[in-house]
């Protein structure tokens, strides 16, 4: 479920197709997200999950799985 929500945000913000987003996808190398994109994704995650993600945590998000794990914690 968490993955689905994360996927929807990535699809929307990065102009991706759903089948392009996998748990193991590297945000930068596979999904072409730059740091501005990532910030946009995080802000949307905060809204979707009603949480606050500190900026110092951004670099932890290398793959989609990292985001999902972080949110499920």
């Amino acid at each position: 479920m968490t993955f689905e929500k994360v996927k929807n945000i990535l699809v929307e913000e990065l102009g991706l197709e759903e089948d392009e987003v996998k748990l193991e996808s590297n945000l930068k190398d596979d999904l072409e997200a730059d740091s501005l994109d990532l910030a946009e994704v995080v802000i949307n995650l905060e809204e979707e999950f009603d949480i606050e993600i500190p900026e110092e945590d951004y670099p932890k998000f290398v793959t989609v799985k990292d985001i999902v794990n972080f949110l499920e914690k």
């Binding site: 990065l14 102009g15 991706l16 197709e17 392009e20 999904l31 072409e32």
Partner: peptide, 12 residues
């Protein structure tokens, strides 16, 4: 243009 598959291909 608006981000989509084709702009991501261009980026690559």
């Amino acid at each position: 243009s608006i981000k989509n598959s084709i702009t991501n291909k261009f980026k690559k």
